[in-house]
Design a protein around this nucleic acid. Structure first.
Length: 597
RNA sequence: GGGGGUGUAGCUCAGUCCGGUUAGAGCGCCGGCCUGUCACGCCGGAGGCCGCGGGUUCGAGUCCCGUCACUCCCGCCA
């Protein structure tokens, strides 16, 4: 007999009755009846009830085994009597009569219980991640992650994509997030950087003639964490294709994401392909966000003209100075008490808005402080624009365009939640397209790349030379699901002449471009196919499919918000000799104690 | 870098608003009883720098100041 197991803890069925078997696993839970003990043995595959009574000399040993000890149990499979079958357990029709018992590894008193669904602080869970990973929820999430990645890989290969590995130690990229730096021992004062994404490598692979690239790629960015953003590192389904238009990329990505979501959504509806395409400008107007949550039925509209020159002086004056007014409908909110509106007003102030005006479209009248100051024609214009019916209310945001869009989006989200309008258990996808190539820094007035500097401007060189930079759009797109940005991508700029011009507009000389992207640029000068791609975030996909609100729930060993690994103790000070090896001298910030480890 | 929330037993939390006897509960742990449970049940017990430091007060878990940790958000994330 195998020293550890003949079967797994999820395997035994009535057909095994009478067989002598051996199981190994963790002592999940014990029910001690004094002269009879039930021991639930757990492994990756399931749970099996083992039983022993005082007739056995092993009884005392089994009775005192501590939870989460690893044990090997040998015995006879016994069919349970009808009254004692546990229908909630896959192995619940049988149990194991213990005839031999060996403790492989005894467990101390636990800082957190594995059995049961008690909640623990994230601090504790990260410190004892190996215990947390044994628990149902996290264990299932990591299994799901594995299945999602396997499915993605299969779907990509079926579509003719080749999987690559690209360097982890690479060069710092001048645009984008802060890099993680790795000092060079051989080259004093020089550093490698961990890749923020394999962006340049995948483009080089296209130029190298491989046609269709993908990678489940680790990406490293030294930026602060969020609930949906891992500190330090995360994974992307990075992909790139040659000789493609934007539509070709969409047509390649959609079936993969749609297929994976249908496969793992447990019956929840998934937007059919092709996914809706929403230009960024429309997204900002109608949804108040560059990542619209289409589960929320509320649509924002512009009602600036209804307030221009009106008796509602507060808005009229600001509109004269160039502000816009956005209307956010609140379906069936007319019967809500005054407190509903006051509460939202207080919330708006706390969010940094001046307040939140509103009008209530009741059956025969329009009520509210703003409505009193507007003529019927103006109210009718608002009603038409916002599409409200009798019984609805409308909220108003008045501010400079960008700010108004953002606040209106926050109001839309808040109303969707308050009025319980957000559709549950559904995955709603869309593409957000036509991102601008540049934006003007509001403080300095300087023109900067708004997203990826390697994107192809719509209209090519001609657009760059003839248009006002903020008006130039790029073949740049995001994919959004339920208000979560899953990926961004672009058709790349493969033309050196266009690239020099694009960088020139953002204030980089030809020499700058050559110094920073010399490798890429030389590649473009020796025959580069038109190409483009995208990079959906793996962690976010799994997070959505697992129904988790936090990305750390789908990562086996995440760092905490301070980018520390509490289990391994990273980051940590290193021996001075090792610092000398890499020519580093540490200068501590003043008046701040270093974080201990 | 900034703002909000949290910090009390191994763990999850109550008590803090409005200062006053020996700081409680559930789970876990230890001991006892229990032969059909599956979140087993019953009885008993141990376990506390009330995050840390300072202050106010006759008296601080509770009020004030500072600080640290965790978390959520803003900045940041081409």
């Amino acid at each position: 007999m195998h020293p550890y197991r003949t079967h797994t803890c999820g395997e035994l069925r009535p057909a095994h009755a009478g067989r002598e078997v051996r199981l190994s696993g963790w002592a999940h839970r014990k029910r001690d009846h004094g002269n009879l003990v039930f021991l639930d043995l757990r492994d990756h595959y399931g749970l099996t009830q083992c039983v022993i009574d005082t007739a056995s000399p092993l009884f005392a040993e089994v009775e005192k085994v501590s939870p989460e000890s690893v044990v090997t149990v040998t015995g006879t499979v016994v069919a349970r009597s009808a009254e004692t079958v546990n229908a909630t357990l896959a192995t619940g029709q049988v149990e194991l009569q213990i005839s031999a018992f060996n403790i492989e590894s005894a467990a101390d008193m636990l800082p957190m219980q594995v059995a049961g669904d008690a909640e623990y602080s994230e601090d504790l869970r990260l410190r004892y991640r190996f215990l947390d990973l044994r628990r149902d929820r996290l264990h299932a999430n990591i299994v799901l992650r594995n299945q999602v990645i396997a499915s993605i890989r299969r779907r990509m290969i079926e579509q003719g994509f080749m999987e690559f590995q690209t360097p982890i130690l690479t060069a710092s990229s001048p645009e984008g997030a802060r890099d993680y730096l790795v000092p060079s021992r051989i080259h004093p004062g020089k550093f490698y950087a961990l890749p923020q994404a394999p962006q340049q490598f995948k483009q080089l692979l296209m130029i190298s003639g491989f046609d269709r690239y993908f990678q489940i790629a680790p990406c490293f960015r030294d930026e602060d964490a969020r609930a949906d953003r891992s500190p330090g590192e995360f994974y992307q389904l990075d992909l790139e294709m040659s000789y493609v238009t934007q539509d070709d990329v969409f047509a390649a990505v959609e079936p993969v994401l749609h297929g994976v979501f249908v496969e793992f959504a447990k019956g929840a509806p998934v937007t059919p392909t092709p996914f809706p395409r929403i230009p960024l400008a429309e997204s900002m107007l109608r949804y108040g966000s560059d990542k619209p949550d289409l589960r929320n039925p509320i649509l924002i509209s512009d009602v600036t003209e209804a307030f221009r020159g009106s008796n509602f002086g507060l808005f009229a004056r600001v509109v004269e100075k160039g502000a816009v007014v956005r209307a956010i409908p609140a379906p069936k909110a007319a019967t809500r008490p005054r407190s509903f509106y006051d509460k939202l007003n207080d919330w708006a102030k706390a969010e940094g808005m001046g307040g939140l005006g509103y009008a209530v479209f009741a059956d025969n009248e329009v009520r509210g402080p703003i409505a009193k100051n507007l003529e019927p024609a103006r109210l009718e214009a608002i009603r038409t624009a916002s599409g409200v019916a009798a019984g609805d209310a409308v909220f108003f945001v008045c501010a400079p365009k960008a700010e108004a869009a953002k606040f209106a989006g926050a109001v839309r989200t808040r109303l969707g939640q308050e009025l319980e309008l957000i559709e549950a258990n559904v995955f709603k996808f869309c593409w957000v397209t036509d991102f601008p190539m540049y934006e003007r820094d509001p403080d300095t007035g300087k023109i900067e790349f708004s997203h990826n500097p390697f994107s192809m401007p719509q209209g090519g060189l001609e657009a760059l030379t003839s248009k006002d930079p903020p008006d130039i759009l790029a073949f740049q797109y995001d994919i959004v699901c339920n208000g979560v940005e899953l990926s961004s991508g672009a058709i790349r700029n493969h033309r050196p002449d266009i690239m020099y011009k694009a960088f020139e507009i953002a204030g980089y000389s030809a020499a700058d471009v050559e110094a920073r992207f010399g490798g890429m640029l030389s590649a473009f000068k020796f025959g580069a196919p038109p190409h483009g791609g995208s990079a959906p975030g793996i962690d976010r996909i799994v997070m959505l499919l697992a129904g988790e609100p936090n990305i750390r729930e789908v990562v086996a060993f995440p760092m905490n918000q301070q980018a520390e690994d509490l289990l391994m103790g990273a980051p940590a000070p290193v021996d001075p000799a090792r610092l000398r090896d890499v020519h580093i001298r540490v200068e501590m910030p003043k008046a701040k104690e270093p974080r201990g480890s």
